[in-house]
Design a protein around this nucleic acid. Sequence first.
DNA 1: TATGAATGAGTCTTCATTCAT
DNA 2: AATGAATGAAGACTCATTCAT
Lengths: 211, 211, 211, 211
Amino acid sequence: MSTALARRTASHEFRRAAVLDAAAEVFARAGLEGATMRAIAEAAGYSAAALYAYYPAKEAIYADLLAQSLDRLRRAVNGAIDGATDDEARMRAGIAGFLNHYRDHPRDLELGLYLFQGLGPHGLSPAHDRDLNNRLIAVLRRIADTIARFGRRDPLTAHGETVSVFAHLIGILVAERTGRLKTLDARADDLLARFLDGLVARLRGGAESAK
Amino acid sequence: MSTALARRTASHEFRRAAVLDAAAEVFARAGLEGATMRAIAEAAGYSAAALYAYYPAKEAIYADLLAQSLDRLRRAVNGAIDGATDDEARMRAGIAGFLNHYRDHPRDLELGLYLFQGLGPHGLSPAHDRDLNNRLIAVLRRIADTIARFGRRDPLTAHGETVSVFAHLIGILVAERTGRLKTLDARADDLLARFLDGLVARLRGGAESAK
Amino acid sequence: MSTALARRTASHEFRRAAVLDAAAEVFARAGLEGATMRAIAEAAGYSAAALYAYYPAKEAIYADLLAQSLDRLRRAVNGAIDGATDDEARMRAGIAGFLNHYRDHPRDLELGLYLFQGLGPHGLSPAHDRDLNNRLIAVLRRIADTIARFGRRDPLTAHGETVSVFAHLIGILVAERTGRLKTLDARADDLLARFLDGLVARLRGGAESAK
Amino acid sequence: MSTALARRTASHEFRRAAVLDAAAEVFARAGLEGATMRAIAEAAGYSAAALYAYYPAKEAIYADLLAQSLDRLRRAVNGAIDGATDDEARMRAGIAGFLNHYRDHPRDLELGLYLFQGLGPHGLSPAHDRDLNNRLIAVLRRIADTIARFGRRDPLTAHGETVSVFAHLIGILVAERTGRLKTLDARADDLLARFLDGLVARLRGGAESAK
DNA sequence: TATGAATGAGTCTTCATTCAT
DNA sequence: AATGAATGAAGACTCATTCAT
């Protein structure tokens, strides 16, 4: 019986993943507001009602989608860092990896911004929110490590610098995705380069600039 | 007779402003998607149908709201700049004015983010969009001027630097508003100070760093 | 006082006529369902509320419009008959005048069909209906006369024939206006000619066909 | 499984038919413009939203209703023709069948007039319109055949005569339905008889009257 | 497990009409 | 005489969700 149950569970998880895939596709195609339960169901080859066997509400699909998206981001960032050879390169690679991942994967950006922005209509439950936060922190922690190492900063200082990096990255992404960058005749690449150069200079400069 | 007409017109404008206020309040309370015509009407003490005496469509309310919001931002930035005494202070004041205006006026931030985000579903008409863009550009231009003057940069270089500033400001605001800053135990003030210090250092450094 | 009152009344009637004109124009432009009170008011240079000083309801405007339209029809038919020289020509002219008036004045046809069709939504009051009926009968009576005279029929027989003519005319007009004639590759002229020839032949034939 | 699916499909069709019935009733009762989705839903014992499980839009209900109505007309006409014994009787029967079908089925007349009248506001899609036209033509073609056969006319001439018949029938029906016949103290039967007699006489007369 | 059926609440918008001024 | 202001009722349609099967 236990085997049968396990099999059933595995099968269930398998189909849940298929639903999630379909949802991701719909989100990418129709945008966040246009992603209706019916559209997701159709993409998954189910009826709308069937979705409720896998997720209790639309909100839960969002949450799951976001979690996966943040994991993909983490893998991208980690991969970029691991592929670099010296400390400065690692720091630069991690930060650029963050930006490029989102630039290369608009779906994930869409989801990420939704998160950053606090999804108006139904909002996520606090539990979900905490979970997602932790996944984001995991990404940033790795970047903080490279900063601490390259800049020979203590963890606290490195953390402050990381948040600054994080804010800048978000700013670039938001500005680009909303067309303001094009309007202002600027490019994300250039912005990042400028910021990184400044960051490197600053970290090299003061042996220990306060927080 | 002319007086009566003027009085009537003024009264009309007065009530239109009241509707706009109510709309702003609803936007702040219910979020962007939750701002329905009925909600706005109720907040204004009207029936939904009555709104159409003041605005021909929901979109027009958005547009008006955003336009006024950007004008308030411009006044805040200009005021901050004009109140400072030397070139460095002017630059710092303009940038800080941008950030603080939005921190002090969450409603305007909500609206601004809506703009930055590109309002998915119902979007603004191209005409409206262009108008709003111009208002934003007007704000940034003033900041660019202070950068050019303090850093003795040519306009083109100053523009690039301005976009970087803009991106950073957006990033800070988005991160704060969505609670990520609190999560990361950071404060907007510190982030701004850190960024400004870096900016000043950079501008002081190279007499003329390419674009 | 009596003079003042008369003047006031005349002035009122004058403006009522202007409203009616505007209404006719709107009906022609926007169709029957598209003719809103506001549209009529704008065409008349009034506010919507002002119309209620001249007509108690939209329905009354319809009714007045229809009455005038039927009077125009009567004048057209009478004119056609009076312009002809012998009895057969007079009969033919009267009938053709009916058809051609409506073909040349689509506005009136629109109104007429509305009448014939019983205006769904609000319907006319019985009083109005009776009045309009009488105006239609006045038209048909004149045609009946020409039939009686040409066919040397007694009034009763002539009346029966007239109703048949009336039905045929309506049929042609409805079929043409709704595009069915074009669909069937037919022309109103031909249909009328065919019918008239048959009518003449029939009336010439039997000295006195019952009823 | 196939059985279950078939049963489900059949059940769906059954309820769709019920919706259609309800719609027909509403159309007959409330007139064309008064037939709202909500009214139809209530008549069918559904919520308004439920209708959309059976028809994607109001327009589709119209179209279905009209199509079925025209098919009923065709069956009535065909049946009448097939029940007659000689050529003249067949022609008379077909024409009378058209008229009587509509006199006996006021709902269908209401729908038919809607068609003939070109449904102003929301109109049918061109595709629907073409389809309905074809169904009407199918009816008329059968009548044209009987005319050609009885009158020994070539198809072209018979067609012209058929359109004349069609126009007359419409005229009678419109006049009757809108109460004008009663006003004029006439009866549809008599009108038809008179017209048919004339038609027969004409067809017997000239061996071949042009067009 | 999956579905078809069904719904209530909600969306924006239009319109004829009323009323204080 | 005329109007601006305001409204209730209505329009078609959508959506997330529930439930019996």
